[in-house]
Computed example of a mutant assay.
Amino acid sequence: MKRRTALLGSLAAAAAASTAISSARAETPVDLQLVLAVDVSRSIDEVEAELQRRGYIEALTNDRVIDAILSGETQRIAVCYTEWAGTHYQVVVIDWTVIDSPSAARRFTEKLAEAPRQSQSWTAVGAALAHAGQRFDNSGFVSKRRVIDISGDGRTNDGPPAELVRDRLVEQGIVVNGLPVMMNRTNFGRPPDLTLDKYYEENVIGGPGSFMIVADNFDHFGRAVRTKLVREISGADVTRRPVPA
């Protein structure tokens, strides 16, 4: 009986070790794990939403972005694309995908172009950050850098304060970068938020080397995304001060 118990214990230990090895092997090394968290609240109209989605599609297939990916140690990154609005709406549009070539980037953007898009009420920046942070759990990848790239045209009016969630993410070693879109027009009867960039700087971005790129409007969104992705992927040393697109 003792020998049987010892044998069973040995088999259990071997199985656990095998599982641990298999799990370790399953984690693919990449230079960057990047969550793109995109605002789809109702303050963004259909034309602006199309410009926003197209901005990511064109940026991810841009030669400068591809060159930045291929310049890394493993020459590949992993990207997860999410959309968010109020606390009730955070959705993974495209789950973790390796981009290691122009063709891989093109396949990713083709899926993004075909994905349905919804518009939802409220703006929950904090909830969006929390949801994005959870994407790194069991992603299947391992990297020196984990980054959330969050874009939006408004500040939190629903859910937890963005700065509290941001601080917890930074403690976990996650960097949060921002892309505020400054809209010089009235939204649902509210005057334009002329200090949204300051809100993002103080309450949203955080972590070593965190930064934000400011888009004056959605017409400039694509250029802002391209500039931002090149910096994020290359890991360039940038300041936390807002940089106009």
Results as ranks from 00 to 15, higher is better:
Ala24Gln: 01
Ile205Leu: 08
Gln172Thr: 15
Leu129Lys: 10
Ala245Asn: 14
Ile57Lys: 10
Met182Tyr: 07
Arg135Ala: 05
Ala85Arg: 04
Val238Phe: 08
Ala15Gly: 00
Ser143Cys: 09
Trp84Cys: 06
Val142Gln: 10
Arg168Ile: 14
His131Lys: 06
Trp96His: 12
Tyr89Leu: 14
Glu201Met: 13
Val125Glu: 02
Val175Ile: 03
Asp193Arg: 12
Gln134Phe: 07
Glu50Tyr: 06
Trp96Lys: 11
Ala128Phe: 04
Pro180Cys: 11
Leu129Phe: 03
Arg223Ala: 11
Pro244Cys: 10
Ser101Lys: 01
Ser71Gln: 12
Leu32Val: 15
Tyr56Cys: 02
Ala224Leu: 05
Leu194Trp: 12
Arg166Ala: 00
Gly189Ser: 03
Glu201Ile: 11
Gly152Arg: 11
Cys80Ile: 13
Gly206Val: 00
Gln120Cys: 12
Ala124Glu: 02
Leu194Cys: 14
Gly209Thr: 08
Ala26Asp: 08
Arg231His: 11
Gln90Ala: 05
Val93Gln: 08
Leu8Ser: 03
Leu32Gln: 08
Gln33Leu: 08
Ala104Asn: 06
Arg64Val: 15
Val170Trp: 05
Glu83Thr: 14
Ala20Phe: 01
Ser41Ile: 13
Ala162Met: 04
Arg76Ser: 05
Arg166Asp: 03
Glu48Asp: 08
Val181Glu: 08
Gly189Lys: 01
Gln90Leu: 05
Arg240Val: 06
Val98Lys: 02
Gln172Tyr: 06
Glu114Ala: 10
Leu229Asp: 01
Tyr81Ser: 07
Asp219Arg: 15
Thr109Met: 15
Ala104Glu: 13
Ala85Tyr: 02
Val225Arg: 04
Gln52Gly: 10
Val176Tyr: 00
Val170Lys: 07
Ser121Arg: 15
Val93Asn: 09
Val238Asp: 03
Leu60Gln: 02
Thr61Leu: 05
Ile57Ala: 12
Val40Pro: 13
Ile205Cys: 03
Asn217Leu: 04
Ala20Leu: 06
Gln134Ile: 05
Ser103Tyr: 05
Phe136His: 00
Gln134Thr: 10
Leu164Glu: 13
Lys111Phe: 07
Asp193Pro: 13
Asp158Gln: 08
Ser139Val: 13
Asp149Ile: 01
Gly133Thr: 04
Arg54His: 09
Gly86Gln: 10
Ala12Cys: 10
Asp137Cys: 07
Met182Lys: 13
Val170Pro: 09
Ala132Ser: 14
